[in-house]
């Protein structure tokens, strides 16, 4: 097949690096998209394989190939874990730039703006990646810059910013999963929201028998970034009789989207609200976990559950 490398001005420079990817697949266990769909074509390895296919001419630049390259939350766990040192997200970004030149833009996980946009420009200022801009008429998102952190969704007062394909990290789905857990497990007490950088659950793609899960006290839900936590999401478990909620975010200098600082403010406001209505604010906790520190995270959860056991349910 005809080598198409010259058509990919940005991706071209990675040709040697693409050979360094040994396709071990170890990146699967870090990727929330693969964990959500179970399809290998949603995993980081698939994007590297697709990038190779694009420049070798073995993959036609198409909407579906582009959709793969535009679907990434840029949590960069895969890149941090890759022992071959492949700079995955840089390759994804360069592939996006080339595909945009060809008129292919995903959408993948790029945030879009719906018609009810009020043109308040809050999202433009809030975007940590300068992906959003105003052209005088409408808000535009640069799909090569958008890292799907979701902060624009949380700041938009009109609810006009959307990530259509959120791979299970959207607010409504997370609320539904939280309520299902709380309503079906007698011993359930807490929902833990975790960012995908700080929490490393390994793959956990397998389903345990009910006998192994029925006594679970808590459920961990990955919402990608602390910056995407919002009051409605954090309060929803309490409507289903949760005893408490915990949010796990990156340490102060670790967040790529500045989301941990937003999360701190939101949690603090909620704790103050609880205090004002005479509910123990300790039922809402925020912890900061360095990348993948499972031991610390588990210790924090265990401590929290002990605390909740002493507090009991909210009366």
């Amino acid at each position: 097949m005809e080598n198409k490398i010259k058509e990919f001005k940005n991706l071209e420079k990675w040709q040697g690096t693409l050979a360094n990817c040994i396709r071990c697949g170890y990146c699967f266990e870090h990727c929330p998209m693969f964990k959500h769909t179970g399809w290998e074509s949603d995993a980081p390895r698939a994007k590297i394989i697709t990038a190779f296919g694009l420049i070798s001419g073995e993959v036609e630049p198409s909407e579906s190939a582009a959709d793969k390259m535009f679907s990434c939350f840029y949590c960069k766990r895969c890149e941090a874990a890759c022992s071959s040192g492949v700079p995955l997200t840089e390759i994804f970004t360069d592939a996006r730039k080339d595909l945009v030149e060809m008129g292919l833009e995903g959408p993948g996980t790029t945030s879009i703006t719906k018609l009810n946009c009020a043109r308040c420009l809050i999202c433009v200022g809030a975007c940590p990646h300068e992906a959003r801009s105003y052209d005088g008429k409408n808000i535009a998102t640069d799909p090569a810059k958008c890292q799907a952190c979701g902060i624009c969704l949380e700041v938009c007062p009109a609810g006009a910013a959307k990530i259509e394909n959120d791979f299970g990290t959207g607010r409504d789905e997370l609320i539904e999963r939280a309520s299902t857990f709380l309503n079906t497990h007698e011993s359930s007490k807490a929902i833990i929201f975790a960012c995908n950088w700080s929490y490393f659950p390994e793959l956990q793609a397998s389903v345990l028998p009910d006998s192994e899960t029925r006594d679970n006290n808590y459920e961990i839900l990955v919402n990608m970034c602390g910056g995407r936590l919002e009051p409605q999401l954090l309060m929803a478990p309490f409507l289903h009789n949760a005893w408490g909620i915990m949010a796990a975010v990156c340490p102060d200098d670790d967040c790529q989207h500045e989301g941990n600082q937003r999360a701190k403010k939101i949690v603090e406001n909620l704790r103050n609200t609880f205090k004002s209505i005479d509910i123990d604010p300790e039922r809402i906790q925020l912890v900061q976990i360095p990348a993948g520190d499972k031991t610390l995270f588990q210790a924090e959860i265990d401590t929290f559950v002990v605390k909740l056991n002493k507090m009991g349910p909210i009366r």
Binding site: S41, I49, V59, E60, K68
Partner: peptide, 19 residues
């Protein structure tokens, strides 16, 4: 089920040198 060529291409690989 998936039949799109971009998905098939991904699944045509494993950790070997072959495709």
């Amino acid at each position: 089920i998936k039949t799109d060529p971009s998905d098939l291409y991904v699944y045509g690989s494993d950790s070997s040198v072959h495709h």
